[in-house]
Amino acid sequence: MVCRRRILRIGNWGDDVAILQNTLASLDYYTGPIDGIFGPLTRQAVMRLQADNGLVPDGIVGPLTYNVIDQLVP
């Protein structure tokens, strides 16, 4: 069964963004508030994660970025 996740980018908000922020914080990429708002700090954290893991640092959380997160946080 394929679990589809929403592509996250600047301007998105919700529980899935808060989960992303918590995950990025646990990996030492994010130090901002866990507020469920995908703003500049979240984007910067995503871009650092992407760059560190060989992805194009576009700040958008899509399938490739989710795959990296899933490998880092089983």
Score class of each variant (00 low, 15 high):
residue 54 G to W: 07
residue 64 L to M: 14
residue 64 L to E: 15
residue 18 A to F: 00
residue 30 Y to R: 03
residue 41 L to G: 04
residue 12 N to S: 06
residue 21 Q to C: 02
residue 26 S to G: 10
residue 66 Y to K: 09
residue 56 V to K: 03
residue 13 W to P: 01
residue 25 A to G: 14
residue 41 L to M: 06
residue 74 P to D: 09
residue 17 V to D: 07
residue 20 L to C: 15
residue 71 Q to E: 14
residue 43 R to M: 12
residue 71 Q to L: 13
residue 70 D to E: 14
residue 59 G to H: 03
residue 24 L to P: 13
residue 74 P to R: 15
residue 70 D to M: 06
residue 19 I to M: 07
residue 6 R to K: 14
residue 11 G to T: 07
residue 35 D to P: 07
residue 2 V to P: 11
residue 27 L to H: 09
residue 56 V to C: 02
residue 2 V to E: 07
residue 53 N to V: 02
residue 57 P to G: 01
residue 6 R to Q: 06
residue 7 I to N: 05
residue 9 R to E: 13
residue 46 V to H: 10
residue 64 L to T: 10
residue 21 Q to M: 02
residue 7 I to H: 14
residue 51 A to I: 13
residue 22 N to W: 01
residue 54 G to N: 13
residue 1 M to E: 12
residue 31 T to K: 05
residue 9 R to K: 15
residue 33 P to W: 00
residue 22 N to E: 14
residue 73 V to Q: 05
residue 49 L to E: 09
residue 42 T to A: 00
residue 32 G to E: 08
residue 8 L to D: 00
residue 28 D to F: 13
residue 30 Y to N: 04
residue 11 G to E: 08
residue 68 V to T: 11
residue 46 V to K: 09
residue 33 P to V: 03
residue 39 G to S: 10
residue 19 I to W: 04
residue 46 V to D: 12
residue 33 P to R: 10
residue 14 G to N: 00
residue 35 D to I: 12
residue 50 Q to V: 15
residue 68 V to I: 15
residue 45 A to P: 05
residue 3 C to E: 13
residue 7 I to S: 00
residue 31 T to L: 03
residue 52 D to Y: 13
residue 15 D to V: 04
residue 27 L to D: 08
residue 16 D to Q: 10
residue 39 G to W: 06
residue 35 D to L: 03
residue 22 N to R: 15
residue 17 V to A: 13
residue 5 R to D: 05
residue 50 Q to A: 13
residue 58 D to A: 04
residue 62 G to T: 10
residue 27 L to R: 07
residue 72 L to W: 10
residue 32 G to M: 02
residue 40 P to M: 00
residue 38 F to H: 06
residue 71 Q to H: 10
residue 16 D to C: 01
residue 32 G to N: 04
residue 19 I to A: 14
residue 54 G to V: 12
residue 65 T to L: 07
residue 69 I to G: 05
residue 22 N to A: 09
residue 25 A to M: 15
residue 16 D to P: 01
residue 14 G to P: 03
residue 6 R to P: 02
residue 25 A to F: 07
residue 31 T to N: 08
residue 71 Q to R: 14
residue 10 I to Q: 09
residue 7 I to F: 01
residue 40 P to D: 03
residue 13 W to F: 12
residue 53 N to D: 02
residue 20 L to H: 06
residue 64 L to Y: 08
residue 69 I to Q: 08
residue 52 D to A: 15
